[in-house]
Computed example of a mutant assay.
Amino acid sequence: MYPPPHAHTPWQPIRRWWQHPALIITALVLLPPAGIALVWLSQWNQKKKIIATVLSGLWFLVVFLSPDAPKKTGDDAKSKSPTAVTATATPQSSAPAAAAPSPTPASAMPSVVGTPFAGAEKAVEALLDTELTARSAYTDVTLGADHTQWVVCFQEPEAGSALASKSVSATVHLVDAGTTCPTEKGTALRPKSSPTPKPTPTPEPEPEPTADNDDSGSGGGGSVSYRNCSAVKAAGKAPIRRGDPGYGSHLDRDGDGIACER
């Protein structure tokens, strides 16, 4: 016997990716114009192409070109707006919202001026973790070992200042009980007096040369006499003639009656 002849298989064209039925149907629903174009490029028969084109065109006219479509779209957007959602959700929240906790106010530095140091320590011990520092208000007064009863004159920080934390350092300036506070910090209780400058001595005027009495002179007479010619010249009387005040023979060496001529 002879083997049966092979059946003849008709030739079929190769299908492209844009000819896939699922892609074409999706395009017909979402974007009818593109879907219709893909239908006529597909391998469907003529009858299927016509039916798909008519149905997709009617779908496009009803859904996309209907005059009520923008209104419905706007109504849908309005119904989905945050305001509508909030209005709908508001009646459901019947319980009042819990109030947010208010921040704890910062502690303020109390006023301790005028109080003893012991009282100042008690006033700030609950506000600060650090010890209260004590200093003397006067620069020339040493802080006593037992200064619990010394009075506060100045404080740091100032009264009413906000304390950011309990680790802030506080300082007070004290004076002994019964001592008046200074007007400002850094003042000496007993300031040293500046030395009084000694007055500059006024030089005494030199005495004018006085003529010595000399009774040995002749012809001079009077009470004026000169010891030598230097004294005569210093007095501006040279030369002296016989008979002038201060003339003496001891001044006239040559005896011509004119003394201290040179």
Rank of each mutant, 00 (worst) to 15 (best):
Y138D: 01
D212L: 13
G221E: 11
G144L: 04
Q149T: 09
A170D: 00
G160H: 04
L189C: 12
V224I: 11
E156K: 04
T183Y: 02
Q155N: 08
L128G: 11
H173T: 06
D212N: 15
R227A: 00
S169D: 04
A211V: 09
T133W: 06
G160Q: 08
T200G: 06
P201A: 05
R227N: 02
A238H: 02
R135F: 01
S167G: 12
V151C: 11
S165P: 01
I240W: 02
A238Q: 11
G144W: 02
E208F: 02
D176I: 03
P209K: 12
A188K: 09
D146T: 05
D176N: 02
T202G: 07
P197R: 06
E206Q: 14
T179R: 05
T200S: 09
G222R: 01
L128R: 10
P157S: 09
D212T: 12
G144D: 08
T171N: 03
H173F: 00
P205Q: 11
K166P: 02
L127D: 09
S225P: 01
T148M: 13
V168R: 04
T202A: 14
T133D: 13
E131D: 15
A162L: 13
P207L: 02
P209R: 13
K192M: 07
A188F: 07
A231C: 04
N213H: 02
E156A: 09
E131N: 15
